[in-house]
Design a protein around this nucleic acid. Structure first.
Lengths: 147, 147
DNA sequence: TCTCTAGATAGGAATTGTTCTTATATAGGA
DNA sequence: TCCTATATAAGAACAATTCCTATCTAGAGA
């Protein structure tokens, strides 16, 4: 999987700086490094993976900080949490509208884009007010199929 | 939310009996009662809820049996596990192709049906071989909106 | 630049959801 | 009815996440 382009990473980091300024949330080293890990990865890392990577640079980082920060970033709309069937939540800093292909064998997640949003049925507003739509395709990824 | 029609519940139980006969899996009281709880509910109960309800009839039922049985039923294709953002897995015995509206406030889940499956983009087969497609609409349900 | 303080962190304990272990029980075929 | 592979109960263990609290610090204001 090709890495996120450096210019794109920089744009994402800029969004973090802006969001901190706008919401009054402090821009700590921890937040910067945690967000950077998500922003520069296409592989939708889980909290433990992020924890391990950040710890290379900041050996005293705690699990709590990683979880708390990811929750804040999610609340600010800077990252999305992706739920799969595999127990651990995965994180995603791609701000464009997209969907996920989830490999049910290895758990890898890949983004894809829909040309047009699926048309929801008439009665959907009887259920509540929709805020977001998530399409998840599950199957076996090529890497697993070839092994 | 209206309950599942008794005739539909009976059909679902019949599918369980058939599946047990076909796969050689034993038809125990515990399995029957656990499946019945999922089959007769529209509310996509989680394992703990199922555990509590079954315990009314079978006071010695264990958590392990509930989890193990739900996993077996899922493997046999008799129930689906629904992942939401809320930590606990939810279960569903509706065998028809359907999708979910998830309330992000109270966690309630409602089924809806799509007239036609969303058309996946050209390149999707480059990611892997798709096996199932899940559309989840998130928002605030009417019950929450009015409180 | 220095000070101050509300908000953030580290470290470990606690909690929650789920799975494992093992002794006992039972479904269903012979 | 008997036999045995399979399933269960009970509680321990595990894994992911959150809580607790003493300490620290970003960033506003002097």
């Amino acid at each position: 999987m090709k890495p996120v382009a450096p210019s794109e990473v920089e744009q994402r980091l800029e969004r973090l700086r802006l969001a901190c300024r706008n919401t009054g949330m402090r821009m700590t080293h921890q937040r910067l490094e945690i967000f950077r890990e998500v922003a520069q990865s296409n592989e939708h890392p889980d909290a433990e993976t992020i924890f391990k990577r950040v710890r290379e640079k900041m050996p005293t980082i705690s699990h709590d900080t990683v979880y708390r920060t990811l929750a804040s970033l999610e609340e600010m709309g800077l990252v999305d949490r992706v739920e799969t069937m595999a127990g651990r939540a995965r994180y995603d800093a791609n701000p464009d509208c997209h969907h996920h292909f989830v490999c049910t064998r290895c758990g890898s997640i890949a983004d894809f884009y829909l040309d047009q949003a699926p048309s929801l049925p008439e009665g959907i507003e009887n259920l509540g007010s929709a805020e977001s739509l998530h399409v998840q395709v599950r199957g076996i990824c090529h890497n697993c199929k070839n092994n």
